[in-house]
Write a protein that binds this DNA or RNA. Sequence first.
DNA 1: TATCTTTCTTAACCTCGATCAATTATAAAG
DNA 2: CTTTATAATTGATCGAGGTTAAGAAAGATA
Lengths: 190, 190
Amino acid sequence: MFHNLKMFFQRLIPNLDEETWQSFLNLQQVKHYKKGTIISHEGRTNNVVSFIEKGAVMVYNHVEDKRCIYNFFFENEYTGDYESFLTRQPAQYGIETIEDCTLFQLHYNGLQLMYDKHPIFERAGRLIAEAQFLRLTSRNASLLAEKPEERYLNLVSAKPQVIQRVPQYHIASYLGITPEALSRIRKRIR
Amino acid sequence: MFHNLKMFFQRLIPNLDEETWQSFLNLQQVKHYKKGTIISHEGRTNNVVSFIEKGAVMVYNHVEDKRCIYNFFFENEYTGDYESFLTRQPAQYGIETIEDCTLFQLHYNGLQLMYDKHPIFERAGRLIAEAQFLRLTSRNASLLAEKPEERYLNLVSAKPQVIQRVPQYHIASYLGITPEALSRIRKRIR
DNA sequence: TATCTTTCTTAACCTCGATCAATTATAAAG
DNA sequence: CTTTATAATTGATCGAGGTTAAGAAAGATA
C-alpha cells in the first residue's frame, strides 16, 4: 500500500528507522478523488499536503476571473498549496485533479508533531523544501529567459507526460500564453 | 560585529543556545568586496552562502551571450547560488556585487557539520529553504501572470530599494524586458 | 448512432515589446 | 573642468502573441 511513499522517504533519509516510519504511517489519510475535483481551494487555509499515489493534479489560481496554471503533479510527487501550508494563510492557489487520484494526505499538525518528535524528519522536510526550491528555480529561469516557443519545446522533451496527459489549453496557460497561441506554435514547428 | 546575523537566526530558532551559536560563529568568514566584483562564478561549483552585512548583489546568468538578472539581494539577506550549493553541481548563476559589500560567508562543509552536530540548525535550514521557496513562488506568479508594466509597478511598491539602488537596465533584465521597453513603460505611466 | 459539449484550430486585426540606430543625460576618470 | 565611458531616452520598423469570432475535431452522453 505505502510502497511508493516509503521509497520516496528512504531516498531522502536512508537511516529512517521502522518505529519512526510507523508513527508517520499513522498520520496518513488515504483519499480517492474523481477527475475534476478541487482538492484545495483558493482562499481557504490549506492544512494538508498530499502524496500522489496515482493520478495527476494541477495547481492554479484566478486573477480577475482569468485562470492561470502554475504546475502539474503526477505519481510519486508531493502536492499541496505548500505556501499556505507553511504560512498558515489563506491559499492563493487551488488544486484540481485532472485524472482520478489516490492520495496520501498528511495534516499540518501531524507533520509538526513529526518534526518535534523525530528530528530526522526535519531533514526530510528540509530536503523537500530544497527540492521544491530547485524546481521553482528552473521554472523561473524558463519564464524569465525563454520565449513561449522555447518553453513549449523544452516542456515536450523534459516532461513528455505533461503533453500526453494534460489538455492543451491548460498547457498553454502553464506556458503563459493563450490556447490560440499554443496552437499556432505547434503549427509553426511541424 | 555579528549582531544582524544573530537577529536573523534568533527569529528562525529562538531557542538557539549560546554554545551552538559560538560554534556557528567559528565557521563565519568575513569578506569585503568592491562594487562590481563577481563573488560567485557561472560554471564553478559554489561552496559558500553569504550573509549580506552591508551592500547589495545581483544574481544573473548568461544564455548565449545575453545576460539575465534573476534577483537582487540586500542587507540582512542570505545570498549564494543556492542551487549549486545544494546540488554540488556547477553553478548556472553568477553573483556580482552592485555596491561595496561586507559578507559573512559560510562553507558547505561547515554547514553540513552544523546540521549533523546541532539538529536545531536543520530547522533553521528548513525554514530558510522554505522562505526561499516562498520568495520564488511569488516571483513565479509575477512572471507568469503579470504583464511587464504590472511587474514594474508592483516592484516599485514592493521593493522600492531596488528602484533606488539598482541601475535601470538591470531592473529591465530582472523584469524580463529590454532597457528600451522599461524606459517606455516609465514614460507611459508618468 | 446521433446529439451535445468540450477542446482545438484557423483567420483577421491590434497591441506591446524587440530590434536597430541615433541622441541625450549621467557618471567616472584624467 | 574637460574628456570619456556608461546609462537612459526616443524614434521607426517588425513580429509574436492577444483578442474576437467562427468553424472543425474530438469526447462524452444519451
